[in-house]
């Protein structure tokens, strides 16, 4: 068990850097393997070298950037929907109970 008060593994920038370095290495390795390993493909694009890595990278960058644009349009306050009465309350006239039923009597 880790002592919760001691700084964690990722609190040290050096550790983070080390992890990232390993990660970059993996990426590079995978890119190289694309050249090394022969693959049977269905779609012609798959044969392009670096197709998958590139698609993955660009796809995500575009995703995030688009999402940021979306935020400008769609983002509202956290309690945006909270300050409105329920549908039922909207139309409930609380004074209008059974009393009014008998109020106008047809003779």
């Amino acid at each position: 068990m880790m002592n919760s008060d001691s700084p964690g593994f990722f609190d040290k920038p050096a550790n983070v850097k080390r992890v990232l370095r390993v990660f970059y290495a993996c990426c590079a390795l995978l890119l190289i393997m694309d050249v090394v390993i022969h693959r049977h493909v269905v779609h012609p694009w798959e044969t392009l070298i670096g197709f998958y890595p590139l698609y993955g990278f660009l796809g995500c960058v575009v995703l995030v950037l688009l999402a940021k644009v979306m935020r400008k349009v769609l983002m509202r306050d956290e309690d945006f929907y909270d300050h409105q009465p329920r549908v039922v309350d909207l139309v409930t006239d609380k004074k209008d109970g059974a009393e009014s039923e008998a109020s106008d009597v047809d003779r």
Binding site: V91, T92, D93, K94, K95, G97, A98
Partner: peptide, 12 residues
């Protein structure tokens, strides 16, 4: 149904 929504008195 619409009128019922508006009634606060349960029996009404």
């Amino acid at each position: 149904s619409l009128v019922a929504m508006r009634k606060d008195n349960l029996k009404a």
